[in-house]
Amino acid sequence: MIELKEAEKMVDKLAAKNGKLLISLLEEVQAYYNYLPEEALRAVSKKSKIPLRDVYGVATFYNAFRMKPCGKHLVCVCLGTACHVRGSMRVLDKIENRLNVKAGGTTSDKKFTLETVNCLGACALGPVMVIDGKYHGNMTAAKVDNVLKDSESKKRNKK
């Protein structure tokens, strides 16, 4: 549980760095908390004098924002057209099967959050997936198990 007063203090600090831009501020808040807790949104609304409904509207409009905490490891599969044409759907299917979670969700043991992105711009490597900032290229369904196992042993995700 996050205390509203604590959230307000944190938002003050981040806003001082960021100036007026709402989206950048929300990004900083998410980088700190790993998602956008309700209390933080209330604090942002108070600080920026933007009505909460508009802050919430912005937070839920953009794909980059998460309203639920992220798992220990962030698995991001590129579903850009070039990767799609090279078979990224099969890689995603295999990951969903292995982790027993659908894209957009977090595993029940909170170890993995699985997201998709619509182009990382690394098309020569396609199909591409990124785990905790580390790129894995030329992915096939067969490679998924090893890549997931490998990342499990590493530290918490850094975005």
């Binding site: 929300l26 990004e27 953009y62 794909n63 980059a64 992105v117 619509n118």
Partner: peptide
């Protein structure tokens, strides 16, 4: 200004709204 993952923000007026 940074985007936040919205393809539609490549459209001029949406981009302006985003900033």
């Amino acid at each position: 200004a940074k985007g936040a993952g919205a393809f539609v923000c490549g459209e001029e007026t949406a981009l302006i709204a985003s900033i």
